[in-house]
Design a protein around this nucleic acid. Structure first.
Length: 264
DNA sequence: AATTCCTCCTGATAGC
DNA sequence: TGCTATCAGGAGGAAT
């Protein structure tokens, strides 16, 4: 679930519910999702603080406190947040923030591929990991997209999913933007004409915007989106042909062999 | 340096 | 029904 649009929804969720409340404690931390921090570090950094702002870069979410470090979250494959009060008992809570007003913010992650950390500076945190640019941030235009793809020799899909090239695209959205742009997942990034790269950029922006417009509820997307069909119907929304299936970049890939070309 | 492959963990689902 | 096998939307690290 959590690729760039889903993490953006989590960011908005924090903004809508979890800002401005004094933190009384942190609990239920599963060491499996703690990345470079201990429960004690989290307690010391967060207790007495209030969350005041959020920032998202690719699939990373940063939640800023009024005068402490930022809480860093990555949702892995199954992570999500839940803000709740008395009477709710969510399962798979790997980390929890307890506010003094009685409300709680839980990081729920059954598969435990998520991560919780702390940083004094999101930009330094991202730079230390050599993360690529976020394609939805201001300034990331067609030229910037051409620049990050330049000289890349791998499969187009693998390049798009490489977070150090560009941050935020995972398996599903890579498939979707390639489908929208009519490009084969195994096309070579370096073979693409400039106009094709620009078309892929436009498809990427359109896909993110469309998904956010429906709150990442794929069933509400228009009919021409692969996201609606890849799991159950398995047919191309444009021509009705059975979708092709392959493993590209180590992940299950669906595409329409008729509409998606290797060269363009 | 860039790319590919394996692995971490648990739940849902399919097949017997 | 109950068991087992397979697969799942990510990314770090090792190997190539």
């Amino acid at each position: 679930m959590p690729e760039l649009p889903e993490v953006e929804m989590q960011r908005r969720y924090v903004d809508a519910h979890a800002l401005g409340q004094e933190i009384g404690g942190v609990g239920a931390a599963d060491a499996g999702v703690l990345s470079g921090v201990t429960r004690k570090d989290l307690r010391r950094a967060l207790v007495g603080q209030r969350f005041v702002t959020t920032h998202r870069h690719g699939k990373w979410l940063f939640v800023g406190t009024d005068c402490g470090p930022w809480l860093v979250m990555h949702f892995g494959m199954t992570g999500e947040l839940l803000y709740y009060g008395d009477g709710a008992f969510p399962t798979h809570v790997r980390f929890r923030v307890d506010f003094r007003n009685g409300a709680r913010l839980a990081f729920i992650d059954p598969r435990k591929f998520g991560a919780i950390s702390l940083t004094d500076s999101p930009s330094e945190f991202l730079a230390a990991r050599r993360w690529g640019p976020d394609p939805t941030h201001p300034g990331f235009d067609r030229e910037a997209f051409r620049a990050v793809l330049r000289g890349r020799t791998g499969c187009l899909k693998s390049v798009l999913m490489n977070q150090r090239v560009i941050a935020g695209i995972g398996n599903l959205y890579a498939d979707e933007m390639l489908f929208q742009a009519g490009l084969h997942p195994e096309a070579r990034a370096a073979d693409l004409k400039r106009s094709t790269v620009d078309a892929l950029f436009d498809a990427m922006q359109a896909v993110f915007a469309a998904s956010l417009a429906v709150g990442t509820d794929y069933a509400s997307l228009p009919g021409q989106f692969l996201l609606r069909y890849r799991d159950f119907a398995g047919v191309c929304p444009k021509c009705g042909r059975t979708l092709a299936s392959a493993v590209v970049g180590g992940r299950t890939t669906r595409y329409c062999a008729r509409h998606q070309r290797r060269r363009s």
